[in-house]
């Protein structure tokens, strides 16, 4: 049971979007600051630092997580996923991301990373969601640009597309 001293930086190793990474952090450093300024993954944004706006939402070991309510030292050894890991290649978009673009489900794009992470995790759990389920999920995020309607549409469209592709995906599984 090591005690991590407040005044020192401690090595934190974890998996970020499937790649092993490590960095140093004092115990009080928030996961948001650690990801963005120590690791250099700036796709996760900071909007309120008190867990309301949802811009910093990531997944840690599959659990949706407000990075601003998480300490960097807490993710030692964990599997962290962020918006940078959603697409399979740098020049591609995931089905969800593409649905966002088609539906103009973002304007300034600042809150978008967190919303994408929530929806990506949610659609794995609930592949055929109703609109009110999507809205309930989205109520954990604040978006000031869109009025949410196009986000809901994009989510439903992505869910339908993912569901329709499911058999094909399985048959092409390698």
């Amino acid at each position: 049971m090591p005690l991590l001293n407040s005044s020192q930086r401690h090595r934190v190793g974890f998996s970020l979007n499937g790649h092993s990474v490590e960095g140093d952090a004092e115990p009080r450093v928030l996961l948001t600051d650690f990801l963005r300024h120590e690791i250099g993954a700036t796709g996760t944004h900071v909007g309120c630092e008190h867990g309301v706006c949802g811009a910093c939402t990531v997944t840690v070991d599959g659990m949706l997580t407000r990075a601003c309510l998480t300490l960097a030292v807490q993710i030692e050894g964990c599997d962290v996923r962020t918006v940078e890991g959603l697409a399979t290649a740098p020049d591609r978009l995931s089905i969800l991301q593409a649905a966002f673009r088609r539906n103009h489900a973002l304007q300034c794009g600042f809150c978008t990373a967190g919303i994408l992470m929530s929806l990506d995790a949610f659609l794995r759990e609930v592949p055929t969601p109703a609109e009110d389920q999507i809205r309930d999920l989205l109520s954990g995020h604040l978006c000031r640009c869109t009025g949410y309607t196009p986000i809901v549409r994009a989510a439903l469209e992505a869910a339908a597309e993912l569901a329709s592709r499911q058999p094909a995906v399985q048959s092409h599984h390698v």
């Binding site: 001293n5 407040s6 600051d33």
Partner: peptide, 17 residues
């Protein structure tokens, strides 16, 4: 809006905590 400094212990058992 950053926490004041603290030490951190990751307990591996209730007894440790």
């Amino acid at each position: 809006m950053k926490p004041a400094a603290f030490d951190y212990v990751r307990a591996s058992s209730a007894e440790e905590a």
